[in-house]
Amino acid sequence: MKLSEVRDILDAEVLYGEDELDREVFSACGSDFMSDVLAYVKNQALLLTGLVNPQVIRTADMMDMKCVAFVRGKQPDENVLALARERDMVIMRAPIRMYDACGKLYAAGLRGDV
């Protein structure tokens, strides 16, 4: 699924990486616990989270993820966005909750494990 589709499905606002929405992701994960992301994620390229701090970006970076989508309308601060820019990571903000965000993407064919 292209990140542009992810944006459309989540009705998300792109906060960084508008030019990179052609990137393709094949699986995703949703978690507010970064240690769980580090423990269980394999090749998911999209992280959905309600946690907004620099460690989210660092965690996603360690896992070679391409995009972080903040749910529940959470707004990352400038520090978080700066880290994402340095790592060329697409950042989105979706108004809906985690459960709905995961459900919508899953229903559209984006699975957790491929």
Binding site: D32, F33, M34, S35, L38, A39, L51, N53, T59
Partner: peptide, 16 residues
């Protein structure tokens, strides 16, 4: 915990 850690996964993850 507020930053998404402190779940008791640090050393187990390092071993993993």
């Amino acid at each position: 915990r507020d930053l998404g850690f402190g779940a008791g996964m640090g050393l187990p993850n390092m071993k993993r």
